[in-house]
Measured scan of single mutants.
Amino acid sequence: QVALSRTQVCGILREELFQGDAFHQSDTHIFIIMGASGDLAKKKIYPTIWWLFRDGLLPENTFIVGYARSRLTVADIRKQSEPFFKATPEEKLKLEDFFARNSYVAGQYDDAASYQRLNSHMNALHLGSQANRLFYLALPPTVYEAVTKNIHESCMSQIGWNRIIVEKPFGRDLQSSDRLSNHISSLFREDQIYRIDHYLGKEMVQNLMVLRFANRIFGPIWNRDNIACVILTFKEPFGTEGRGGYFDEFGIIRDVMQNHLLQMLCLVAMEKPASTNSDDVRDEKVKVLKCISEVQANNVVLGQYVGNPDGEGEATKGYLDDPTVPRGSTTATFAAVVLYVENERWDGVPFILRCGKALNERKAEVRLQFHDVAGDIFHQQCKRNELVIRVQPNEAVYTKMMTKKPGMFFNPEESELDLTYGNRYKNVKLPDAYERLILDVFCGSQMHFVRSDELREAWRIFTPLLHQIELEKPKPIPYIYGSRGPTEADELMKRVGFQYEGTYKWVNPHKL
């Protein structure tokens, strides 16, 4: 086992960053958080920038500027975001240094004079007029057009580079997404736009490419001749908990499936790229999406959770019991969808996408189930092999396979070949997804960000279904809070070829 401390991990990262040409360590950078008073800024962006600063992973002359409508001070920003920093008493001095680099400007999102004030403020910072500028839009999409237009007109660096990070949702359907994309691309070049999907920053999602293309053993079996089906799962054990009003506007397909799960599907299904260059990788992902037809209604199961009468606390409440959810809402909190990649490698292999709230566990994984062994000599005792990439929690890679049961006879039983990170790298604290992705933006690497043509294809696949749901308002199937979801989803999976045995229990190697 390799035991690495946080300091050692960050030392390795620093070495990698400083050796590259793309990370300008000594240049002045300004990180501007648009929507600095909001939840995302408070819980994710400010803490992430602090962790990067604490670990010495930001360029040395980096300033952080918050911008929002609320009249706040840096002290206010500190008060609301610091509880999420997880700072230790030993880091007190470092924390003071961090907040000394912070400033805040209040202004409207659609007022040109406010942006001119913001620009004057940035120019007044040390070497601010020639600094590289990175704008993070932690804002609702309704203000994107006004904000990007004003940034472009008043706040661009004339000497350094300018980059803009856009948070999902990128529209509600193909038409609104196209409108937003066309607007942003009329102001910024594609190499300046970073559409963030934080799932692409997760260690195991990034590991998929290495697993596939750096190991000879997987190449020959990664196709329709050997793989019976692919299941991509995202499960949350909690409901909307008072935030249903926002969720109800989008629903589970827009929230998770059309982005996170579809991105994971691309990494499983794509061909080997010409290189690890950002556009070479994204070219292959677009090719996969172009091979997927629009979702067919007979390959869809929609569910909505109801309270568990035997549960406790939140578990007793259904989705419609959330006071922020519109009365009688038919918005799905669970969806199972089957897609097919219609190309030579994957023809006929079902890709089953499942996601839901208020389920029995927290889990995100990719599961490849292989065909049955031909010419069975073990009297149907063999179960199908599976390769599982567990994204969260407890990152893991393992192969479910058959071995001989101890004893006199040739009785096979299920076991696993474990390729888990935790076994080799004991207690290594890896940077989280937002840390990686923000560092990628500083480096100018777009590999783990969504390109406009990729986004367009993703919406093309799901828009007809979303429009049909909005028009017909089908009643989702009720499922109990804390269950596996509607049984109809299991029946759909069985119908397209997935075999669920229920006889195997994964042993978490992190707890051995």
Rank of each mutant, 00 (worst) to 15 (best):
N299L: 06
G311M: 08
P478A: 06
K475V: 13
V268S: 03
I469R: 04
N394R: 13
G313Y: 06
K383T: 13
M257H: 07
K363C: 13
S415G: 13
G502P: 15
D255C: 07
V337L: 10
P406M: 15
E491L: 08
G307M: 07
T330W: 06
L368K: 02
S445D: 15
R362N: 13
F370E: 00
L359H: 05
P309C: 10
S445C: 09
G328C: 12
A433C: 15
G311T: 10
Q296N: 08
V507T: 11
C266Y: 01
T331A: 11
N394L: 07
K429T: 14
G444S: 06
R460F: 00
P486Q: 01
Y305W: 12
R436Y: 09
A489Y: 08
H379Q: 07
V366N: 00
P478S: 09
K400F: 10
N298Q: 07
T276E: 04
E413Q: 11
K383F: 15
G328F: 08
M402W: 11
W346D: 00
P309F: 07
K511L: 14
V397H: 03
N411D: 09
Q499P: 15
R451E: 00
E312Y: 08
Y504H: 15
F378R: 02
A358I: 02
L339R: 00
S329V: 03
T403K: 12
R424N: 15
V325H: 07
G311A: 07
T330M: 09
Q258K: 12
G497R: 13
H260W: 15
E344D: 14
E457R: 02
G482W: 07
E470P: 04
L320E: 08
K405L: 13
D490Q: 12
D376H: 06
D432G: 12
L265G: 02
A358N: 01
V450H: 15
L339Q: 01
T487R: 07
V288E: 00
K285M: 14
K426F: 15
M447R: 05
K287I: 04
P476A: 07
K285V: 05
D310S: 11
V306E: 06
W459L: 13
C291M: 11
E491M: 11
R436D: 15
P326N: 02
R460M: 02
M402L: 15
Y504C: 12
E294K: 05
R362V: 10
D440K: 05
Y504M: 13
Y398H: 15
I292A: 07
L262S: 05
S415N: 15
K494A: 12
D440Q: 06
V397T: 15
K429L: 14
M401F: 11
Y481E: 02
A458M: 14
A335M: 01
L289A: 07
Q380F: 10
R424M: 06
E386G: 05
Y504E: 15
L289F: 05
A315E: 08
F334E: 01
T399V: 04
R484K: 13
M264N: 05
N360C: 08
D432T: 13
N298T: 10
L455C: 04
R390L: 08
V268P: 01
H379D: 15
Q392I: 12
E342I: 05
Q499G: 14
S329A: 11
I377V: 14
E491H: 10
K429G: 15
C266K: 02
S278W: 05
Y319A: 00
Y421K: 05
C266V: 03
L267P: 08
I469C: 07
G313C: 11
Y479Q: 02
P393V: 01
T316N: 05
E312W: 12
L339H: 03
S415I: 12
V301P: 02
T420C: 14
V325F: 03
K285T: 09
R282S: 13
I480L: 12
L437G: 15
E470M: 07
E365I: 02
Y500L: 15
G318W: 02
P431W: 07
Y425C: 12
F370L: 10
D440H: 04
K494I: 12
V325G: 03
T399L: 14
E386A: 07
M447E: 12
V496N: 12
Y305N: 01
L430S: 15
D310I: 11
E344G: 10
G307R: 04
I352K: 00
L471G: 06
K317A: 11
G348D: 03
P412F: 10
K404C: 15
Q392N: 14
A374K: 13
P273T: 00
H379R: 15
Y481D: 00
G482E: 03
Y479K: 01
K494Y: 11
V373S: 15
Q380N: 06
E501R: 07
M270K: 00
R390V: 08
E361A: 12
L437C: 15
I438P: 00
F449A: 03
D322F: 04
P309K: 07
G422P: 15
A274C: 06
A336D: 03
E365L: 02
A396W: 15
K383Y: 14
E472M: 07
L419N: 03
H448Y: 08
Q304D: 01
K511A: 07
T403S: 11
K363A: 11
G303A: 06
N360H: 07
E312N: 12
M257N: 01
V338S: 07
L387R: 01
D279S: 06
F498T: 13
M257F: 11
Y398F: 12
Y421I: 14
R362Y: 11
V281K: 02
G407P: 05
K404H: 15
V397Y: 09
G375T: 14
L302I: 09
N308I: 07
H510G: 13
